[in-house]
């Protein structure tokens, strides 16, 4: 039971942050694609902007890893 809850907790940590990242990247990516069509020279800057929200899911992954590794029974 406890192991199951730990697994669910880890899953939620990655899942919700991945959802947030995906939502943000979707919106930034759509705007970025339009901007690149107008000014191709800003491609690098758009990659940078699209990449920024990924920190959320990486931190979610870090939390999930901590849950699994540090909690007793994990």
């Amino acid at each position: 039971m406890e192991l199951g809850l730990i697994a669910i907790g880890a899953g939620l940590a990655v899942g919700f942050t991945a959802f947030g990242t995906g939502y943000a990247q979707g919106r930034i990516g759509a705007a970025g694609a339009g901007a690149i069509a107008e000014k191709p020279e800003i491609t690098g800057r758009i990659i940078l902007l699209v990449a920024i929200p990924e920190t959320m899911v990486i931190l979610g992954f870090a939390v999930a890893a901590m849950i699994m590794l540090l909690l007793p029974g994990g």
Partner: peptide, 12 residues
Amino acid sequence: LGNVLSYLRLAA
């Protein structure tokens, strides 16, 4: 510190 943690993606 967040920047350093961001390198976790290499593992992920």
